[in-house]
């Protein structure tokens, strides 16, 4: 097994466990609202996810745009499926299904 891959997994996994478990075990009160820590925590998640949305879609747009119609259908279906039930899993599956279906129709 690739040593670098195992090291990467252990570092990321240990951090994941710490993020999920330690605040529950140790923190009995929330960070001061409006404080630096609270603002940093509040901004990091949205920044990370927005970055990944762009990073995952960008290769399809640049340098050579490809499969734009399936991409548009997938994005629209994800948003449309998310809004009524607020389900991340449901929206993900709907978006992927729409992308695959439109890809099949236009190819």
């Amino acid at each position: 097994m690739n040593t670098d891959l195992v090291l990467l997994a252990v570092l990321a996994g240990a951090a994941n466990w710490a993020f999920r478990a330690l605040p529950t075990l140790l923190l009995r009160q929330e960070p001061r609202p409006g404080g630096l820590a609270a603002r940093f925590l509040a901004a990091t998640g949205p920044a990370a996810i927005a970055t990944l949305v762009v990073a995952s879609a960008l290769p399809q747009l640049y340098p050579v745009p490809r499969d734009l119609i399936p991409l548009a259908a997938g994005v629209l279906a994800t948003v449309a499926a998310y809004l009524p039930r607020r389900s991340v899993v449901g929206a993900t599956l709907a978006g992927a299904t729409a992308y695959g279906a439109v890809f099949w129709l236009v190819s």
């Binding site: 949205p46 996810i49 927005a50 990944l52 949305v53 995952s56 879609a57 499969d67 399936p70 991409l71 997938g74 994005v75 994800t78 948003v79 998310y82 809004l83 991340v88 899993v89 929206a91 993900t92 599956l93 709907a94 978006g95 992927a96 299904t97 992308y99 695959g100 279906a101 890809f103 099949w104 190819s107």
Partner: peptide
Amino acid sequence: PALNAGLGFMLTALFLALLL
């Protein structure tokens, strides 16, 4: 190929749904 394309888009859809 269509299933392959749909699964390939799943990551983008997951990130987008998480963003929403």
